[in-house]
């Protein structure tokens, strides 16, 4: 298990999208749409190396309450993800519906390392994409987490919770400001 150390950066950058850039200290809820992922994402991510034994992956799921586990190579390049659906499918193979009995499911159930059970080619988002980009992906394709990439390397993850927390924080601040005005 690897842990990428660091907290959310809080550093503001210009958005690549044509929208109002968020200025430091501008906490209006609507401006957060143009916040970059860099400001939002969780950098403190638990990851596993591609050759991590499957049993270790299972014990991580037993220990932590996460849904998606990024799999990285020795250069911290993202090579895939493991999610709870895969773990459940392997642990309860005998209960998997018949329509899902494919050679690929069976081969995955016999995997002994993270690489052999992971989903290769996960959807990623770049560090300077905006909250709007992330929410578009999440809402369109029902994604809960997206891995954030910087030069091909895993920089962190952004989740629906990160987005909701940021928006709620800004709404709360805006309401407080209205009251004091």
């Amino acid at each position: 298990m690897d842990r990428m150390i660091g907290k959310r950066s809080g550093k503001y950058q210009d958005s690549p999208e044509s929208g109002p850039p968020s200025e430091p200290g501008d906490d209006r809820p609507e401006t957060c749409l143009w916040m970059t992922i860099d400001e939002l994402m969780t950098r403190d991510v638990v990851t596993v190396q591609e050759n991590t034994p499957v049993e270790e992956v299972f014990s991580l799921y037993g220990k932590y309450h996460f849904y998606t586990l990024p799999v990285v190579d020795s250069k911290n390049k993202l090579v895939g993800i493991i999610d709870l659906d895969i773990v459940l499918e392997i642990l309860l193979l005998c209960l998997v519906p018949r329509e899902k009995y494919t050679p690929l499911t069976a081969i995955r159930s016999l995997g002994s390392t993270a690489r052999e059970i992971m989903i290769p080619h996960p959807v990623t988002i770049s560090l300077n994409a905006t909250l709007k980009d992330a929410s578009d992906l999440m809402m369109k394709y029902r994604l809960d987490h997206i891995c954030v990439i910087e030069n091909g390397k895993l920089a962190g993850t952004v989740s629906k919770r990160d987005l909701v927390e940021e928006i709620c924080r800004r709404r709360k601040k805006e309401k407080l400001k209205e009251k004091t005005d």
């Binding site: 659906d85 989903i119 080619h121 996960p122 959807v123 990623t124 369109k140 394709y141 029902r142 994604l143």
Partner: peptide, 9 residues
Amino acid sequence: EIPLAKLPD
């Protein structure tokens, strides 16, 4: 092999 095409949705 294309991530967007392999989204679970």
